[in-house]
Computed example of a mutant assay.
Amino acid sequence: MITIEQLITRIEQRQPVLNKTELSAEQLSTRLNGVGSLTDADRTQISFLADPHYISSLANSQAGAVLITAAYREQVPATSLALVVATPYLAYASSSQLFAPEVFTSGVHPTAIIADSAVIGAEVSIGPYCVIGEYVQIGARSRIDAHVVIEAHTHIGTNAIIKSHVTIAHNCVIGSHVRLHAGVSIGAEGFGFAPTRDPSTSGWERIAQLGRVVIGDHVRIGSHTCVDRGAIDDTVIGNHVIIDNLVQVAHNVRIGNGTAIAAKTGIAGSTIIGKRCIIGGAVGINGHIDIADDVTFSGMTMVTKSIKTAGSYSSGTAAMPTAKWRRAAVRFRQLGNE
């Protein structure tokens, strides 16, 4: 159970609760045990109004407390406690972390295999069947779940959370407060091959990938995402980057601070993406191009050339009946011949 006072303390790490001084000691000691929607929350839960489209649900809400802007404060039911903030959605995000179940027990499971040369910080948890290679360094209070493999000479910062079946290849650098979700691959070989031009084989010569992956602080990478090591220089992910599930980041890609990337995006090699970019789902980004800071790509955009100006970019077409789409496609091809 979390008290309103504890809740306010957490919210105010990001923004002030504007009516905090108006709350009584009894109100501050009110206990809550979770988060609920305006329509479903009960007296033991907190809710929020982030979108005015849902204002109709506020009047009948049974939530114990509601995160609300000043403009809608008077519409909060008398049975609910209003917590007035500038950005309710951000306050909800901060609040949610207090109710998330986090099982953290320091110590090393007896089935883990840890090289004698590895350096393990204080209060680190290492789960069953993990393999920790030579000269690996793991910072204090990090949690390594079951079946994680961390290869030689990799450095991991403090307070990292690495979920089951993550693989981190040799010589990679992972910052502090990083979360790697199940099945993530960091530092696998990039897709580098040279054609042999031998007519008898028509084969390919593998290019050894000699760079690293370097990941900054406060980075979140979703399940089954792959970040390949650099061919010569490093693949680099900046601070505060968030990456969804099933994303491919190829060798020598560089991603700037604060960028967000949604699921099924593919980024080809040696592309540089700026700071604070937002990349929608299933976006395809060509290799060897530069993307400016503060660029947004809507879902399924195909990016074939460098983008030098901040703004929102889109490509592709929305779904329509097949017959109409075929006629539209014919006309589109005809435009290319004009």
Rank of each mutant, 00 (worst) to 15 (best):
H288K: 07
A263Q: 00
S200L: 15
M300L: 11
M300N: 10
I138D: 02
Q137T: 13
M302A: 13
M1R: 06
I68C: 05
G311R: 01
V66C: 06
R276C: 08
H153G: 06
E74Q: 12
V131A: 10
A59T: 11
I68G: 02
I307T: 06
I162V: 10
L18R: 05
T79S: 15
I221K: 02
Y313Q: 00
T3A: 09
R326D: 04
K275Y: 10
S306A: 06
Q62P: 10
I144A: 03
N159P: 13
S47H: 11
S29M: 14
I132G: 01
V136K: 04
S312Y: 02
A319S: 14
H288G: 01
I150L: 02
I279W: 00
V330A: 05
Y92E: 06
E151Y: 10
V166T: 11
A59K: 09
R229P: 09
I215C: 01
V236T: 07
T44R: 15
V149D: 09
I278W: 12
G280D: 10
V108R: 00
Q97L: 15
A93L: 14
T322E: 13
D234Q: 01
R331Q: 15
S223G: 00
E5T: 09
A78V: 09
I168D: 03
N252R: 08
F193M: 03
L83R: 02
S200R: 14
T30H: 10
D244L: 06
P101V: 02
S106F: 11
S96Y: 14
P110S: 12
G256M: 12
A59L: 09
V148I: 05
A182R: 05
I207V: 15
A70H: 10
K163C: 08
G216H: 00
T9Q: 13
A41D: 11
I237H: 12
R331C: 02
G266S: 11
R229L: 01
G287P: 02
A318S: 15
G258D: 07
G336E: 14
D217P: 00
L32M: 13
V236Y: 03
V219P: 04
T44I: 02
T87S: 13
R326C: 01
G64K: 08
